[in-house]
Structure formats: C-alpha cells, structure tokens
Amino acid sequence: MNYAGAMPAGKRSTSTGCWSVNGTSLEASCDVRRSLLDLLREDFGLSGTKKGCDRGECGACTVHLDGRPVLSCLMPAVMAEHHEITTIEAIGSEDELHPLQAAFVEHDALQCGFCTSGQIMSALAFLQRDAGGGAADVRAAMSGNLCRCGAYQQIRAAVASVGASRG
C-alpha cells in the first residue's frame, strides 16, 4: 500500500486555533511548535503560569487540563485545543484569595514565589480529587513541584491545613 499523500495536509508552521481558557474562548495564530505554556504567557498574557525548566522537571508551569494538573511546557499548544484549560488567574481574586492561597500566606509557604502558582494548581487538584489530607498523601501529591527556596515543610503544612479544614 502506498501512503504517500494518503492524508490531507496538516497544520504547518503558523495557523489559527481556538482555546478554552478559564471559561473563555480565546483565538490566536499559533506556531505548531509553540508550547501551551508559551501560548498562555505570550499570546494570552496569562503570565501567572511560570516557565522554569521548560522540560517537565520543575512543575512551575502546572495548569489544569479538563480538571487535572498537567505540565503546560510539555504540551504543544495545538494539542490543548478542545480541552478546558484552567490557570492560576482563575483561582481566587485580588480582593479575595482562594483558601489555599490564603493558607500559603498564613504558613509562609513561599519565599521568592516563582513556583507558587504551580504549587497551588497541584494542591488544588489534590484537594478537589483526593482530599485525603494525610502528610504522606500531601507529599506524594506535591512531588512534581520543586521549590528552590526549600519551603517544602511550609507548603505541606499549608496544603494539609486546607485539607483538614474541609474535613
């Protein structure tokens, strides 16, 4: 069987796409090579999601895809079309922090803050799905988010406090 030209041409270089981000439909002209992370930050101005390693090793770029935490640096933006994307910008507000954000402040769970939005997105998914709240569970749930300042104990305490308050 000869496959040459069996499929019609796909997306090449730059093309227009549509993404559902924080409940809003957003359009952009996007290079196929672009990561979801770069699309969010540079095309949509959602710079709360951070670019640390850009290789899936640090967790700073964590967002939710259909309610589950994923690494936006490891997903080509074209592959995130037709999915619900949630970023840190949808969590809490300037006037009213989300309880998890308030707990991070309360427990001193950050120093430089660069990893915090990714930490919050992982913790949020953990509390929404598992909510076990045990120390081992929190550590396992947060293991994909590195903190170069070393605030791990405070992060664990902050997440556990919200889990505990929800019972």
Partner: peptide, 30 residues
C-alpha cells in the same frame, strides 16, 4: 524543527509511516 501536525481520524491515518505518532507528548516533545 518545523513540523506538520495532524489529528488522525482512523487507524489507517496513523499507519502512514511518514508520520510520527504523538499522544501524551511528554517524551517526544522534549
């Protein structure tokens, strides 16, 4: 490198040896 991207609709689409399959993307994209 620039690449061409397409979504397979049938298994036959994915059997084309000129195209490299992608799904989770975590390793290939890196």
């Amino acid at each position: 490198r620039v690449f061409e991207y397409r979504r397979a609709c049938t298994l036959q689409d994915a059997f084309d040896p000129a195209w490299t399959p992608i799904a989770g993307a975590t390793d290939l994209y890196n």
